[in-house]
Structure formats: C-alpha cells, structure tokens
Design a protein around this nucleic acid. Structure first.
Length: 171
DNA sequence: TTAGTGATATCC
DNA sequence: GATATCACTAAA
C-alpha cells in the first residue's frame, strides 16, 4: 500500500481521473478515520471548458483551480452540499477532478457528508496531510467513460465530452 | 417533481 | 446594496 504523492496529481486531469478509480480516500476529521473506495470521478479542465468554474477567468473562488496540483477545492452547492475536487496538472492551467462517488456513498455530496468534508478543507493539500489522503492498494480496475452530469449551462460540445469515469462492477 | 439552502458572481 | 444561479439530495 502506498500513499499517493504530488507527482500523481501533477499530470493532466484526464490521466489522473481514471487512475483515481479504485483508490482509497481516507479522511481523519473530528478524530474519526473514514475510508472509502473511489468509484466515480469527473474532469473539469481549462478555461475553454465552459462547464469548468474557471472558464470565465480567475476569481476569488476559482483562484485555487489555477494553483498547485494536489490542492483540494471544496465548493458549496445549493447552500447545503459540499463537493470535493482535487487540483491536477500544471500551475496556471485550471483543471481538477471532482470526486463524484465512492463505494456505498454514491453522489458527490453524500460522499463529503459522510467523510465530514466541508469548506474548511478548501485550499488544503492532499499530500502530506494527516487530515486527508489517498491510498493505492494496488488494485487494477476496469472503467467506463460517460458524459458529465449537472452541467446544463455549458456549451453542447462540452456537455457531450466523455469526462466522467465510472468503475465497472466487479473488477 | 419540487423544496430546501447559502456562497458567489454580476448587476445596479 | 440587490438578485440570479448553482458540478445536489431527499422526500413526495
């Protein structure tokens, strides 16, 4: 078992997202360790991706997306749901991977609710952090690509991108 | 199908 | 200052 380091995230989101599938997401928030297997991820990539929060440019909120890889971007949606992303790729190139689901906790907000992830984690690093990390237990998994969801506001070309990655059942 | 909820961005 | 929007979920 190894803990994923900075080099894992310092690559294109389209490489990182599928490889995150099957990894263990481990948090230790409020003194309780929670451990789940990631089953679904989604890529938001670049200013040219109209579904990406950063496509209109830098703001206080999206500043993190332009930053260093391995940083956690947590965003509050509809006033009650925290969504968790991990920044990937080069600095000044806004891209990230949304953790959409884990085994037993399908749904991006259900996952963060279980783990105890909130805006307090926004801007934290996922490498060398006792609060949150990702472990690789060596498993190899099949996955399938699907269209992203919940981005009806984006251009059609971006809505049709197959940037959502789901673990196949079984192995 | 719709209510619930609040930060953020955008427009005065 | 105000208002519109939103990478969702649970309940009906």
């Amino acid at each position: 078992m190894t803990v994923l380091g900075e080099d894992f995230f310092h690559r294109d989101a389209l490489d990182v997202a599928p490889q995150l599938l099957g990894k263990m997401l481990v948090t230790n928030i409020g003194g309780e360790e929670k451990r789940v297997r990631i089953t679904e991820t989604e890529v938001y990539r670049g200013v040219e991706d109209t579904a990406c929060h950063a496509h209109k440019g830098r703001t206080r909120r999206t500043e993190l997306l332009f930053g260093e890889s391995g940083i956690i971007y947590v965003y509050l949606c509809y006033g009650m749901h925290w969504l968790m992303n991990i920044i990937t790729g080069e600095k000044d190139q806004p891209q990230g991977v949304l953790i959409r689901a884990a085994q037993g906790y399908e749904g991006p907000a259900r996952l963060t609710k279980y783990l105890g992830v909130t805006g307090e984690l926004n801007g934290a690093s996922i490498v060398g952090n006792p609060i949150v990390r990702i472990e690789d237990d060596g498993g190899q998994y099949r996955y399938i690509c699907k269209k992203r969801v919940g981005i009806g506001y984006a251009d059609k070309a971006d809505r049709d991108r197959l940037w959502r990655f789901c673990l196949c059942d079984g192995k």
